[in-house]
Design a protein around this nucleic acid. Structure first.
Length: 506
RNA sequence: GGCCCGUUCGUCUAGGGGUUAGGACGUUAGAUUUUCAUUCUAGAAACAGGGGUUCGAUUCCCCUACGGGCUACCA
């Protein structure tokens, strides 16, 4: 590694929701940058106008914000390398493409998409490369004056790289080590499209160079086009400044085969996007981890463990810990199948480890969203402490906390009714009397009183504990009953016993 | 089809020439909690196959198989 300041970039194209694999790429970029006190740049690769989706860029920014992976430079945070949207850099690329043409490393091609499609269909293994390019319409096969004529006439054309023959292109990938390709096998990729926009191939190289990117992380699906990029760095005369490449393993479908896609999420019932994504065209809402009730800390944590570990048995890491422990050498080569069960475990762990105070706002939002009015924050805090260990997702806080704010709407009557008796009614009426003599409920004292009364009436814990829980909670869940009673307070506890009694005896 | 990349329990993975191949999720059984969850204990569960190299390979090399990616004027 040189002594240059580390600069990495995440370069998504704004075509829709942000996939969890994308977030992992961001994360590894970010961890590497911060570990080396470098810069993390967000660059929007919007060179395909036909795929541009309104709102996708803001969405990406929001996702990064939610995750806490804030770019040092982006379309909204200026560094010294603006603009950060490739569509706004359009005029820049042509000059480099023309330079390549002048120097014999690229050429104009006038073939229409239809002609090429036809060739691909009719000729087995057709490639726009050294074998066929002489028989196609381009500045290599046509006479100079014909080319000039076409150009002057404004004939639509693209600029293609001219892949050399019989060369071996190799490089040292930070994750995979030595990787090599035969140039005869790779085709003459389009560099500049007919609409004047660069393709990804030209744009990454030009922008990585101009933005002084030192390390380039991307998914493994880019590996096959690496030789094109390597050659471009060389032909443009920038080889000494080429970033070090790292091709990350893919995140795979949990079942079956292939890359994880948003369709898999819908099919298997879990989110694939970081946050909800609403497609205005189709009206389709693709769910996100955030809205499902994941904590960003847990989301990042689980993503980090998909392909990386620190060599110990530890699996729970804060962002700061990840930054200090991250090393690219410990990133795996093989793809990882996504396991939603384990993802939920990470979230449950994070909820347990997060203080009630830090959880407060998010829990409050969940409750208020369900119509629960939270007036007293300190009351909420006590509730969170007593229920958080039984919540896996933030949404679970509703079921676990709702009864602290409102009388149960329904009782799990079937768990009570079959064994209900007058003795039990008597027990609870006496319990109300006991309670009325107290000024407040103390969980420990109340439990003693409850049990003493129980014995006095000749009842066993199994006879009244569950009914009591159902009186207060409505169902068979929640923390210790006496803690619930204490939190509810004397008056409300009495109130709930009375109300439930009416129902049970009704 | 061609090219490239990969392969340790069901899943995520540690390990690495000589180990009882370790951990986690999930799962099974028990304990605790007369709710549910948590927690705890125990169990089942893996080096794709074949050749080398070696005194010895799961570990190094080769081949095969399997899996994945790419093969657009998409990224």
């Amino acid at each position: 590694m040189s002594d240059k300041k580390v600069r990495v970039r995440f370069a998504p194209s704004p075509t829709g929701g942000l996939h969890l694999g994308g977030v992992r790429t961001v994360l590894f970029n970010y961890l590497f940058a911060k570990k080396h006190k470098g810069d993390f740049v967000l660059r929007i690769e919007d060179t395909d106008q036909s795929r541009y989706v309104d709102g996708a860029e803001e969405y990406i920014l929001d996702c990064l914000k939610w995750c806490g992976l804030i770019p040092d430079e982006s379309p909204v945070v200026d560094g010294h390398y603006a603009p950060y949207r490739q569509s706004e850099r359009k005029s820049l690329y042509r000059e480099y493409a023309e330079k390549l043409v002048r120097e014999g490393h690229a050429y104009y091609a006038f073939d229409t998409p239809e002609e090429l499609d036809k060739n691909r269909k009719e000729i087995p293994n057709f490639q726009y490369g050294h074998f066929y390019r002489d028989s196609l319409r381009n500045s290599l096969s046509l006479k100079q004056h014909e080319v000039d004529q076409l150009l002057d006439a404004g004939e639509p054309h693209v600029i293609r790289i001219k892949m050399p023959e019989d060369e071996t292109i190799s490089f040292n990938d930070m994750i995979r080590g030595y990787v090599s390709f035969e140039t005869n096998q790779v085709d003459d990729k389009v560099l500049l499209k007919a609409d004047g926009m660069p393709t990804y191939h030209l744009a990454v190289v030009v922008d990585d160079y101009l933005m002084k990117i030192t390390h380039a992380f991307r998914g493994e699906e880019w590996l096959p086009s690496a030789p094109v990029h390597l050659l471009l760095w060389e032909y443009l005369g920038w080889k000494a400044d080429m970033p070090q490449w790292a091709h990350l393993p893919l995140i795979l479908k949990p079942d079956g085969h292939g890359k994880l896609s948003k369709r898999d999420g819908a099919r298997l019932g879990f989110p694939v996007y970081a946050m909800n994504w609403f497609d205005a065209k189709t009206g389709e809402l693709t769910p996100g981890f955030r809205e499902l009730g994941f904590l960003p800390e847990a989301f990042l944590n689980l993503l980090a463990m998909l392909g990386w570990n620190d060599g110990t048995d530890n699996e729970i890491f804060t962002l700061d810990e990840l930054i200090s422990k991250f090393s690219i050498e410990r990133v795996n080569k093989g793809g990882a199948k996504f396991d939603f069960e384990k993802a939920k475990w990470f979230n449950a762990e994070w909820i347990k480890r997060t203080s009630a105070e830090s959880l407060k706002d998010k829990v409050k939002a969940v409750l208020e969203d369900k119509g629960v009015d939270v007036k007293d924050d300190s009351y909420l805090l006590k509730i969170i402490d007593v229920i958080k260990e039984r919540c896996t997702l933030l949404a679970d806080f509703y079921q676990q906390a709702a009864y602290f704010f409102e009388v149960p709407k329904e009782y799990d009557i079937n768990s009570v009714k079959p064994k209900w008796s007058d003795t039990k009614t008597d027990f609870f009426n006496t319990l109300i009397a006991v309670l009325k003599n107290e000024t407040a409920i103390d969980a420990v004292v109340f439990e003693q009183q409850f049990k003493a009364l129980m014995e006095e009436k000749g009842l066993k814990a199994g006879d009244v504990m569950l009914p009591f829980r159902i009186m207060l909670v409505g169902g068979k869940f929640g923390p210790h009953v006496f803690d619930i009673a204490a939190l509810l307070g004397k008056d409300e506890t009495i109130n709930r016993i009375e109300q439930a009694l009416a129902v049970f005896n009704g």
